[in-house]
Design a binder for these strands. Structure first.
Length: 280
DNA sequence: TTGTGTCCTTTTTG
DNA sequence: ACAAAAAGGACAC
C-alpha cells in the first residue's frame, strides 16, 4: 500500500546525500563508516556489523514533517512527486570527508574520489559474497601523506582532508556531543574544520548530526530560490557571502519551519530530475 | 578532434 | 570589509 510513510529507497539514495553506493539486482549496497548496509527494494536493511541503524530516520514523524514543510505550491509539488524521499542518517566522519571532497565538484567525481580513498585507506571486507572497503578510520588518513591523499584525485582538498582527520583523531571534534547540541553551536564547531564552510557544514549537520533545520545552500538551491521564490527571498548575486548566507538561512527557516532540511531535499531532488542530472 | 565551460565551495589574495 | 582569484580534474557539449 502506498501512503506517506512508504520509503522510496532509490530516490533517497539517488539524491546527492550519499556517494559510496551501488546497485546489484535491485538491491543497494553501501558503505556507512565502519559498516556496510544492504537495502532491499522495500527498504529492509541488513548490516555487515549487525549494527542497528535508523538510516531512513523512521523515528521522524514524516506525516507531520510533510505537513510542516508544505508551505507553498512549489514544495507541495516536490513533496507529492517524490513522496518516499528521506533524509538519510550517515556516519558523521564519512559524511564530513564526503562533503569536503564535494566542494566545487560533481557527483561522479565525488564518488570516484571517495572510492579511491576507501580502497587506499579502508579495511577490505566481504559481505554477501561481494568485496567492500570500509570507510577509513580518521587515524589512518591523519597519518597519510598529502601526496597519498592527492592520489585519490582530490587535488587541493587533500590537506583539508588530512587536517580534518587529524582533528578527529585528536578528539577535537566530538560528534556525539554535536548530535545533541543545537544547530548554531554545532555549526560553529564544525566550521572550524578546514575545508568546511557554510554549505558543507549544513550538509554534515543535516545528513549526519540530526539538525533538520539546516538547509544547505549550494548553486542548485540558489538557482531554485531565484526561480521559484524570488518574491519571498530576494537574492542579489550568484555567489553569496557568509553574511548573506546567514540572513538567507534565517528567512528560510522562518518560511519552511524547523524541518527546512527536508524541504531542501525535496526541492533539490525535483530540480535535478527536471534537468535530468545524473546520480550514482 | 580539440576546446571550453561546468561542477552540491572554500580559502587566499588584493 | 569585500570582491575576485585560485585551488584538481572529469565530463559534457
Amino acid at each position: 500500500m502506498q501512503n506517506n510513510c512508504t520509503i522510496n529507497v532509490e530516490n533517497s539514495i539517488n539524491s546527492g546525500q550519499v556517494f559510496l553506493w551501488r546497485k546489484n539486482n535491485d538491491i543497494w549496497y553501501g558503505v556507512n563508516g565502519q559498516d556496510i548496509l544492504k537495502i532491499s527494494k522495500v527498504g529492509k536493511i541488513k548490516s555487515y556489523q549487525n549494527i542497528k541503524t535508523d538510516f531512513f530516520r523512521k523515528r521522524d514523524d514524516i506525516e507531520k514533517i510533510i505537513k510542516s514543510i508544505s508551505k507553498d505550491s512549489v514544495t507541495k509539488k516536490a513533496v507529492k512527486q517524490y513522496l518516499g524521499l528521506r533524509i538519510l542518517e550517515q556516519d558523521p566522519f564519512q559524511c564530513l570527508i564526503s562533503f569536503i571532497v564535494s566542494s566545487n565538484s560533481n557527483i561522479q567525481k565525488i564518488k570516484n574520489s571517495l572510492e579511491k580513498i576507501s580502497k587506499k585507506f579502508g579495511e577490505k571486507v566481504e559481505f554477501e559474497n561481494q568485496e567492500f572497503f570500509l570507510f577509513p578510520k580518521p587515524e589512518i588518513i591523519a597519518k597519510a601523506s598529502i601526496n597519498e591523499i592527492k592520489s585519490c584525485g582530490v587535488g587541493y582538498r587533500a590537506k583539508f582532508i588530512k587536517e580534518a582527520a587529524n582533528m578527529m583523531a585528536l578528539k577535537k571534534i566530538n560528534f556525539e556531543y554535536l548530535k545533541k547540541c543545537n544547530y548554531q553551536d554545532a555549526k560553529e564547531e564544525i566550521c572550524k574544520i578546514p575545508g568546511v564552510g557554510n554549505k558543507v557544514a549544513d550538509c554534515i549537520l543535516l545528513f549526519s548530526l540530526n539538525k533538520l533545520e539546516s538547509f544547505p545552500l549550494d548553486r542548485w538551491m540558489i538557482r531554485i530560490l531565484e526561480k521559484y521564490y524570488s518574491d519571498k527571498f530576494q537574492l542579489e548575486t550568484k555567489s553569496i557571502t557568509e553574511k548573506q548566507y546567514e540572513i538567507l538561512h534565517e528567512k528560510i527557516v522562518n518560511h519552511f519551519g524547523p524541518y527546512a532540511g527536508y524541504a531542501q531535499q525535496f526541492l533539490f531532488k525535483m530540480e535535478r530530475e527536471n534537468y535530468q542530472k545524473k546520480w550514482l
